[in-house]
Amino acid sequence: MQFKDAGLSLAHSAPVLQIKALKDDGEFEGYGSTFGGEPDSYGDVVAPGAFAESLASHKAAGTMPKLFWQHQRDEPIGKWVEAFEDEKGLFMRGRLNMDVQRAREAHSLLKNGDIDGLSIGYRIKEYKVDTETGVWTLEKLDLKEVSVVSIGANENARITSVKAFKAAHQLTDKLKAGDRLTEREFETWLKGLGFSNSEAERAARVCLKGQGEPAAADDGLAFLLALKG
Results as ranks from 00 to 15, higher is better:
168 A>P: 10
126 E>T: 10
73 R>Q: 11
228 K>D: 05
28 F>R: 00
74 D>F: 13
220 G>C: 15
113 G>Y: 08
108 S>P: 01
207 C>L: 08
77 I>R: 00
205 R>L: 09
138 L>I: 00
9 S>Y: 01
191 K>F: 09
164 A>R: 15
151 I>F: 14
143 L>V: 10
215 A>M: 11
76 P>T: 13
61 A>P: 09
159 I>T: 14
225 L>F: 10
213 E>A: 14
51 F>E: 01
103 A>W: 00
148 V>I: 14
150 S>I: 11
133 T>D: 15
40 D>A: 05
44 D>E: 12
29 E>N: 08
49 G>H: 02
211 Q>E: 14
17 L>W: 14
38 E>R: 03
108 S>N: 06
155 E>H: 11
40 D>R: 08
87 E>Y: 03
210 G>P: 10
17 L>N: 15
153 A>C: 03
64 M>Q: 15
74 D>P: 01
41 S>D: 15
102 R>A: 04
170 Q>K: 12
190 L>K: 07
21 A>L: 00
93 R>L: 10
168 A>W: 04
3 F>Y: 15
136 W>V: 01
130 D>I: 07
55 L>P: 04
200 A>P: 03
65 P>A: 10
197 N>L: 04
126 E>L: 10
115 I>G: 05
103 A>K: 00
159 I>H: 06
82 E>S: 10
197 N>F: 12
95 R>F: 02
188 T>F: 10
185 E>Q: 15
8 L>R: 07
31 Y>M: 06
178 G>R: 03
120 I>S: 10
218 D>W: 12
84 F>T: 02
70 Q>S: 01
24 D>C: 07
222 A>M: 07
99 D>R: 10
74 D>C: 06
188 T>Y: 05
